[in-house]
């Protein structure tokens, strides 16, 4: 006997999920897209593990969808910041479309990578990686010890490498 097909779960819970997502993102189209993505995740899970079927479909869908919503807000705030930065940097508009796209994708990846880092660790890491400051300069700037800077850098690297694995 095969597990209840995704179609059944879709039929029973899609409109509930759509409504649930709508309350979060406040946009009908966006909610529809996110609902779609949620079911795609379910399909992928079933694909990986043939007998996979959530015991409590709504709880499962809500957990997956919530992750997608948080991701959506992060991307949206990135989009705003990106456009704002672009507007302030005329030199970037001189670049080719491909170059800009590459930069854009890289920034998105880095943003996702750094998402869960504590504020200070993130700030220290960016000062080193982007501004190219020495650890001593960072320590002065942040008002922390040299050892703290190195420890935070190590922590950020561990975080990134773990996610990149």
């Amino acid at each position: 006997m095969s597990p209840p097909p995704v179609e059944t779960i879709y039929k029973d819970h899609h409109s509930w999920l759509h409504g649930w997502l709508y309350q979060k993102v406040g946009c009908d189209q966006r909610a529809a897209d996110l609902a779609q993505d949620t079911f795609v995740r379910l399909l992928q899970a079933q694909h990986k593990q043939t007998n996979f079927t959530p015991e409590q479909p709504r709880a499962y869908l809500r957990t997956v969808a919530n992750g997608l919503v948080i991701d959506y807000f992060r991307r949206r705030s990135l989009e705003n910041a990106y456009q704002e930065a672009l507007a302030n940097m005329p030199e970037l508009t001189m670049m080719s479309e491909e170059e800009r796209l590459l930069i854009r994708q890289t920034v998105e990846q880095l943003d996702a990578l750094l998402d869960r880092l504590p504020k200070r660790v993130r700030a220290i890491f960016l000062l080193s990686q982007l501004e190219g400051l020495t650890y001593q300069q960072i320590a002065e700037h942040e008002g922390v010890s040299l050892r703290t800077v190195k420890r935070d850098m190590q922590r950020a690297y561990v975080h990134c490498l773990t996610l990149l694995w």
């Binding site: 704002e84 930065a85 672009l86 940097m89 970037l92 930069i103 920034v107 880095l110 982007l130 501004e131």
Partner: peptide
Amino acid sequence: VPEKLGLSVL
């Protein structure tokens, strides 16, 4: 990533 862009976005 250009430094200025990276700093203001990230």
